[in-house]
Design a binder for these strands. Structure first.
Lengths: 202, 202
DNA sequence: CCAGAGTCGTGAACGCCGTTCAAGATATTT
DNA sequence: AAATATCTTGAACGGCGTTCACGACTCTGG
């Protein structure tokens, strides 16, 4: 029971992050309330503001954890893939799986915004890079004609295209795909893009 | 000045929609406040709830207008295009132009959510269909091998892919493209997808 | 082991939000 | 012109994120 101050503070912050993660998973990002989080974490309302700057930064902490899990899952998915096309298909499929299994937390990654003037801390911005670095080498193999600069841009474009299809489908928008068609359509999109890349590379 | 009741009510609603549109354009969807809207529309706070059900439905009205303008702009863009590839390129380019010129209003189309239980009225859901119907015929021309059912799904996928690239870029996300690369990258994406479609259609 | 100093957690209170509703203002009917 | 029906008004309400004076706790020097 003899925790010193640093340990207690770290423990409180960890409990708050876990509570916020659970709240988002259950009620979505919009359903995240300071009072519900602190109640679940077993502390007073004001304690939240001793552990993190404000509720937005608590969301950043949750998103940071989600990104780490997503990055690990994607890295694992492309481990055994033979060839760039198979690797990209494996990545897209795993991206869909992760999004479906962590729906609200994954949506929070792209829904969360800071108020007008503020912007995200650099350490968090750079955590997003995994989403691009897992794609880059396979895209380079498909398009040996493109320079490094162009490949970086094309990597962002490729990710965003797949992401857009998954995003609209999981949001349940009218223009989005029905969920039962999502896997097949994303596979077809990746197939179309790799076939197009092969045709344009020569 | 002698307006009857129906005219006054319609006029109030129109003023509220215009005010909400201006507020969203200036401060974003998250910056839309009932008090600011009613002040701009020149009516009392409570009058808002005599014209529309609540603030969410006022956003739906604004989004309805934005969708109509977007649909008209897209229809106009593909008028003079020769061939399906040129038409899809023209549509994508116009989509980007509209999004850039109507940034906050366009973002509101995809950011706005209703609380947990509710969902959008059917008449509004169906207004989104223009985004798909402008694509469908050109996609059908590129992929004569696909059936009608598969083409509908592929149309949604194709829109979502382009939309995803534009969306991440305009949100200013770290993984999004820088705005100055957006047009070229979307053009490259459409080129890749049409090249891939041509390769897979035979 | 104790007392003083420093730090932290607490929850009532604040300002802002969307929404409601009794009451006053306005329009319509008789 | 009076009576009735309808609409508009803005103070008030409950809920939100955030703050802060105060009481409880932890660390340190003797």
């Amino acid at each position: 029971m003899g925790q010193n101050r640093e340990e207690k503070k770290a423990d409180l912050k960890a409990r708050l992050i876990a509570a916020a993660e659970a709240e988002i998973a259950e009620h979505g990002l919009a359903g995240l309330k300071a009072r519900a989080v602190t109640a679940r974490a077993g502390c007073a309302l004001g304690a939240l503001y001793t552990a993190v700057e404000d509720l937005d930064m608590l969301v950043v902490e949750v998103n940071s954890r989600t990104l780490a899990r997503l990055g690990a899952s994607l890295s694992e998915a492309m481990a055994g893939a033979a060839g760039p096309e198979a690797a990209l298909q494996a990545l897209a499929a795993r991206y869909i799986d992760f999004a479906l299994e962590n729906r609200a937390l994954w949506l929070a990654l792209f829904e969360h915004r800071l108020p007008e003037g503020r912007d995200f801390p650099d350490w968090h911005r750079q955590e997003h890079a995994v989403l691009l670095t897992v794609i880059a080498p396979h895209l380079a193999a498909l398009r040996p004609d493109l320079s490094g600069e162009a490949l970086v841009l094309r990597g962002r474009t490729t990710f965003a295209a797949v992401h857009g299809v998954v995003h609209l489908a999981l949001q349940g928008r009218f223009v989005g795909l029905p969920l039962q068609s999502l896997r097949a359509e994303v596979a077809a999109l990746v197939e179309t893009m790799t076939a197009g890349a092969a045709a344009l590379a020569r």
